[in-house]
Amino acid sequence: MATETAPAPTEREEAEHDHHPEHLQHHFVSSKQQFDSAKLGMWVFLITEVLLFSGMFVAYAVFRQWNPDVFAAASGTLDQAMGAANTVVLLTSSLTVALAIHAIKQDRVQRCIYYLLGTLGLAGGFMVVKYFEYMAKFEHGVFPGAAFDPHGAHYEHLAEMTAAPQFFSIYFVMTGIHGVHVIIGMIVIGVLALMAWRGSFSSEWYTPVELTGLYWHLVDIVWIFLFPLLYLI
């Protein structure tokens, strides 16, 4: 019964009200509240991404556990060097994103743009390597699903293996969906670089950079698991 209507806005509210930063939306009390909300929202979104990928990891685990030898043999036909190179590329891009956030927190906009562009370049490199990997597989009839018809010295032995199509289905679906995430990330990072160039960000407000960074690290983490599971073991 003792619900009071707040007699007056608190001091901070008042202060916010006076200079009212343009990025502050009306329903938030302070920039801090807005930033924390955005960040928590991003983390919640990230766990939906984790759960999305988990489905494919379950499929992988089940079929691998049923056919360990086939999976080992099929994984042997993937190009480990390209996989390892791509791992390093993605890890580096994670570093550059972290450095971009590091820079914008200190108002070094120019540096932030360079790091973002560097990330974009590395992500592009990742996709190029992926393209060559896919093409090498398609040339030898290694497709996902019904079109699976391996031929050529390196792949022939897969034709008689019962669960080899499953391995490659899982491989293409997992890396494909991961690739889609990389492309989405590239688009967003490109937009961020443009916004930074136009001077949208400062140490006062860099929420989009921070959130995209989180997203990009998650894409990296997924690959950290995909690499050994698909290429190495």
Partner: peptide
């Protein structure tokens, strides 16, 4: 694509 994860006919 008949990726064969769920359909028993495809393994």
């Amino acid at each position: 694509l008949q990726i064969g994860i769920f359909d028993p006919a495809l393994g």
